[in-house]
Amino acid sequence: MSKVLKDLLYSKSHEWVKKLNEEEVLIGISDYAAKQLGSIVFVDLPEAGDTVEAESEFGAVESVKAASDLISPVTGEVIEINEELVGEPELVNEDPYSAWLIKVKLDNPEELEELLSADDYEEIL
């Protein structure tokens, strides 16, 4: 069984979003996505200052035998990336909910309303 944290929002493409405040969110991939990929060996992330767009690719996660594009659930500016993942991509497997990928400043906080609640996400799994 995959873990779904209650206080997060989710996308259909298995990214999670954590609201830090009205303007800023963290984005990561769900436990389900991490388990599907298997041992993650590389995380390809944008640079701070890049912009991301809802429903567009912003990077990729790679395991030995698979690669999956990361689809941004929101639109905004990348203000920080999780540098730890560069050297230790396996952190995503160890705890996908603390191994966030990027921190984004939202252009349009209303977009969050479009995302799935934990219960809805569990439903689609």
Partner: peptide, 12 residues
């Protein structure tokens, strides 16, 4: 690094 390759990434 086979995840870059056509047999996995196909069109991408």
């Amino acid at each position: 690094l086979q995840a870059r390759e056509q047999h996995i990434r196909r069109a991408k």
